[in-house]
């Protein structure tokens, strides 16, 4: 951490907050506080300058127009690139995930992305809507990913990133892989409050941000019940 306080920045909630994205900031803050870390959450609107010294940056989902506008503002601002160069953690969801790549499609036009991850997105043959599940890259040491996806894009990964997960239900990037990560940057199509269903992923981001090897376990009874219930629902739907 750069200071004694863990600083979390939620990027452009005025543009990119279509699917309960606030949840990720709330969950990270709570899980850090429960481990005794003082936390500060900053909501930075698209007409404000992005601070460059925060520990975790969150980018959420959004409709086509706001997504294109958000990318333009972030490119013009340049703050996120400086933060990444200094080792900050970035977590992008849905439209926010696509933004991190080299290009994406919105309103039928190709837009330049932030080029922080080696991936590009285009339009898929159909909208991917429904439960999303996958087995996470073993190097990350996480239990299976679970979430809900809702996106028209498909994402193609370059050699500079690793897939976050192998898809076991839903579409993700392309029906085979889901999400991507490199260093302390991670993106997923598991949209909205993705961390509500994946507390271990929240803790991974916190470990990256704090440098802690281990974090004390928390009571995740309700999240575990939710995960189990969703796993059963996906299995039942497939049977």
């Amino acid at each position: 951490m750069s200071t004694e306080t863990l600083r979390i920045v939620w990027i452009y909630p005025d543009l990119l907050s279509t699917y309960g994205d606030r949840g990720n900031a709330l969950i990270l803050a709570r899980r850090a506080q429960q481990r005794g870390f003082p936390v500060e959450v900053l909501e930075v609107r698209s007409d404000q300058q992005l601070p460059t010294t925060a520990d975790i940056y969150l980018i959420g989902g959004g409709e086509d127009g706001p997504q294109a506008l958000g990318a333009q503002r972030l490119l013009a601002d340049g703050g996120l690139h400086r933060a990444v160069a200094q080792g900050s953690v970035v977590f992008g969801v849905c439209a926010g995930y696509q933004l991190l790549g080299t290009s994406f499609f919105a309103k039928g036009t190709q837009y330049q992305g932030l080029e922080l991850l080696d991936l590009s997105s285009d339009r898929g043959p159909s909208r991917a809507v429904g439960e999303l599940a996958g087995d996470v890259d073993a190097r990350l040491g996480l239990p299976p990913l679970t979430g809900f996806e809702n996106h028209g894009g498909r994402t193609h990964l370059g050699p500079g990133v690793s897939p976050l997960a192998r898809v076991t239900a839903g579409v993700g990037n392309d029906g085979a892989t889901e999400g991507a990560w490199r260093g302390k940057l991670l993106g997923t199509y598991s949209h909205g409050p993705a961390l509500a269903r994946n507390p271990a992923l929240a803790d991974l981001l916190l470990r990256w941000a704090t440098g802690a090897q281990h974090l004390p376990p928390l009571d995740d009874t309700w999240a575990d019940r939710l995960r189990a219930e969703r796993r059963t629902a996906v299995a039942t739907a497939r049977a």
């Binding site: 309960g20 994205d21 606030r22 709330l26 809507v129 809900f148 949209h191 909205g192 409050p193 509500a196």
Partner: peptide, 9 residues
């Protein structure tokens, strides 16, 4: 709607 994400809104 099949999605419960809005609960966080």
């Amino acid at each position: 709607g099949l999605d419960t994400s809005w609960l966080f809104d």
